[in-house]
Nucleic acid binder design. Structure first.
Lengths: 189, 189, 189, 189
DNA sequence: AATGAATGAGCCTTCATTCAT
DNA sequence: CATGAATGAAGGCTCATTCAT
């Protein structure tokens, strides 16, 4: 029962996802993907009807993976406060391991000008669910405060999360992560 | 002394910049630019040695325009606090007028994976100078507080500025702008 | 004893034939055929060794169907004259029901440049047998005239038949059919 | 002042036209055309924006060439009767010199199922103008008969012309030409 | 300064066919 | 009988760039 190559389609999605993230969706050709997987052109189009389709599959898988990792990480934290902090700990890890390539979803957002596209839809949904998560945790943490107050703080926390991703990618320094980490602790008092 | 078409090179840069911003740098072909300007291929390459070069010129011009507009707007404000608020007022205006296409610099950042490129350098410089501006104003505002305190607040303000750009682009709603506006006022107390 | 789907091979041939006629043999892909039938690629190549083979089978079946319909129609007519007129009545019906797609055989003729191909052979045979039918009927009608005279008239009738097919397809009007109908009656005096 | 290669665009159109006629429009690839002309892909698309465009240009040029040759040939004939006969003499020549590839317009008609296409439009126009020519000549010939009578005869003559083209292509024999020639003389009495 | 013809590698996608299961 | 994964050549077309004029 080998670890590698459970199926060509999975291989394709995994390899394509890596390249898409590394060098961008538009900048990646189907040729490069199939060469790196070691399959023929026709095999690619047997499994995915278009480049956009594998792009959507890539973002959906990235969303699923993130949600799974997040659920696992947050389960280990006890209080809403600890869960929020755990979220930012994931962010720090990601920025380090991703070689400052930033966020696959935000990068795709920038590459895709038309807001009507299917990939853009996946981006919106991913960010919306992340924001909902932050809102839920923040409301729980500020259960003694008004919902208006808690939601405002939640939005700020979410925005800082996003900004850390983008500014780390741009500056390739660690001040964004440190700043949001410190501000987060202040917000959660 | 006609207003339009001061020089072919300026026309080129202006038109190319509009298209780059609207549909992305990589997604824009040289053909489309020359067709919209109404010049020949050779003329393009007489004025700009490559597509990257006009890309760099575009971002540099965008940086200059931003700085000029910022200087003008901030001159009209009296206190550092008012200047910071004026900065966010510019942000709000931009987001509305740009049809949620976000920030030319951050979009280019996402499109250009290699951190060594010249365009990436312009992006870094632009954002670095914006951050320096925020730091200067914030230090002036918090002149009674420590520099460490002021700088932390400056970074937070800057990150919220960036996040508002990105999240407005993604959601096409106005909650990001409203959130950062409210938080800014709280930070400046 | 169900009417539909007597066998996969028959389904294949029927569906492929409909598509070939509607959009042309060369313009039709094997994928479209199997998708519309609802079978796998391998099943197609189990029943037909190549696309050309199903093309040949299509034309042979179309020839058989035409001959059967013609035999039935002509049996109901008593005189050679009435049989010839019945033939043109079939033509009129065909042009109307086929949505002016013309003649499967003549269309294939145009698509297949090499005169040596097997499909071209089927086309030739079909048209040759139709011409022979017209010759037989015309000789019977003109039994009091010389064979040379009758054969010439037969060829003219056959050519008008063919022209009506082609020109109806091109013009999508009914003047070709009306013209040949009127001329036929004149020829048969 | 060399005879060959007056311009690359003319070369392209001439060579493409020859191949289109020889092996069909759909069956001809852009690659084959540029290889035979000896130019690069980009040059093809510099001169023609699509394969369909060069297809349209090919049919329009064929139509122009036919009309020019027809005008020249008919000018030399004195009576309407001689002009019609001259038309059929052109037909005979064409069938022999074209190696029985038939009519570029009718072949394109068969290859292009959608009646809305631009190429189909050119086909219709070509045949319509040929029919109008035959009608004009036939009315002149039958100036003592009614217009209804003359027009009917004109349509028959036109249909025989078309049928000769198609049936010669199919049979690769000369009976169609001989039959229509003989019938034409009978019609013109 | 400006033109526009020419290049050829590359784009995404479809093709008819094969074959292990 | 039937499946569906795999092939690789070919499809039409766009790309940034060069260069003679």
């Amino acid at each position: 029962m080998s670890v590698k190559s459970q199926s060509k389609k999975e291989d394709l999605l995994r390899v394509a996802g890596e390249i898409f993230f590394r060098q961008g969706f538009a900048a990646t050709g189907v040729k490069q993907i199939i060469d790196e997987v070691g399959i023929a052109k026709g095999t690619f189009y047997f499994h995915f009807s278009s480049k956009e389709e594998i792009g959507i599959a890539w973002l959906k898988a990235a969303n699923d993976n993130w949600n799974a990792a997040m659920a696992e990480k947050l389960d280990k934290a006890n209080s809403p406060r600890d869960k929020i902090i755990a979220l930012f700990s994931m962010l720090e890890d990601w920025i380090k391991t991703s070689d400052y390539r930033g966020c696959a979803f935000l990068n795709s957002l920038a590459e895709l000008p038309q807001p009507e596209g299917l990939m853009r839809e996946v981006v919106r949904e991913h960010k919306e669910s992340l924001r909902a998560e932050v809102v839920g945790l923040t409301r729980a943490h500020f259960s003694d405060k008004s919902k208006v107050y808690a939601d405002h703080k939640a939005y700020v926390i979410y925005l800082l999360f996003e900004a850390a991703l983008v500014e780390s990618q741009n500056s390739r320094e660690d001040w964004p992560v440190k700043t949001v980490h410190q501000e987060l602790l202040a917000i959660l008092s």
